[in-house]
C-alpha cells in the first residue's frame, strides 16, 4: 500500500511538471517567438478569412491552378493518412492510371513520379520544381498567359529544402498558386 501511495505521489508530481509546466513553457516560447508558425502557419487575406496553411496541401482541380500530389484522404486536414498500399498493389496501378489520364501523360511526356505517388500524410504541400514545370503549359493555357511567364514564376519559387543534401528543388503549391493569382488575376 505504501508502495502504491509513493508511486501515486511520483505520478502526480511528474504529471504536474511534465504535462503541465513543460507544456506551458514550450507554449510560451512558441507564442512569443514564433506566433505565426506556432498557430499553424496560416495564410489569411486582408479581410481576415483563412485561405489555408502553407504547410498543408489543399485540393486543386481547376486547370488554371497547379495541382498537388494525390492524397489518400482527399486533402482532409483533420483526418490525414497515407494510402498504405503496397508498391506492388494493383489498386495503386488503377489509381495512378486515373492520374495519368487527368494529366494527359504519354510515353513521350511521362508524368513526374511525385505527381503519381500519394504522400505519407496526404497533405504534402510541395511538388518538385520539375513537376511544376510539367504543368506550366496547362496552367498558362487556361489563364491565357505566356508559358514563359509561368515558368519564371515557378523558378522564383523553387527552393532546396536541405541545401546541398537535397538535390531536387521543390515548390510550395499553395504559395505558387497565390502568386499566380496575384500576378495574373484569379
Amino acid at each position: 500500500m505504501q508502495t502504491l501511495l509513493a508511486s501515486l505521489r511520483i505520478a502526480g508530481v511528474s504529471l504536474l511538471i511534465c504535462a503541465g509546466v513543460y507544456t506551458a513553457v514550450i507554449l510560451g516560447v512558441a507564442q512569443v517567438c514564433t506566433p505565426v508558425t506556432a498557430n499553424g502557419s496560416l495564410i489569411t487575406r486582408g479581410d481576415g478569412t483563412i485561405v489555408g496553411s502553407r504547410l498543408i496541401a489543399q485540393k486543386f482541380e481547376k486547370p488554371g491552378y497547379f495541382w498537388p500530389r494525390p492524397s489518400a484522404p482527399d486533402y482532409n486536414a483533420s483526418g490525414a493518412a497515407g494510402s498504405n498500399k503496397s508498391p506492388t498493389s494493383s489498386d495503386l496501378t488503377d489509381r495512378a492510371a486515373k492520374t495519368v489520364e487527368q494529366y494527359g501523360a504519354t510515353p513521350d511526356k511521362a508524368l513526374p513520379a511525385d505527381l503519381a505517388a500519394a504522400s505519407g500524410g496526404g497533405l504534402d504541400p510541395h511538388i518538385t520544381e520539375h513537376a511544376a514545370l510539367y504543368q506550366a503549359v496547362r496552367v498558362a493555357g487556361a489563364r491565357g498567359v505566356a508559358p514563359s511567364k509561368v515558368e519564371s514564376l515557378i523558378r522564383n519559387h523553387a527552393f532546396s529544402p536541405g541545401g546541398p543534401l537535397t538535390p531536387d528543388r521543390l515548390v510550395n503549391v499553395l504559395e505558387l498558386n497565390l502568386a499566380l493569382d496575384a500576378e495574373t488575376g484569379p
Binding site: L92, T93, P107, L111, G120, G162, D168, L170
Partner: peptide, 24 residues
Amino acid sequence: TQAFTALPIEQSTGNLEGKELRFG
C-alpha cells in the same frame, strides 16, 4: 514504385508512395 512501371510515369526516382518530398 513497381505498380507504376507499365504506365507513362517517370521511373528515375525511387519509390515515392507514402513519402514526403521535403525530407529528401
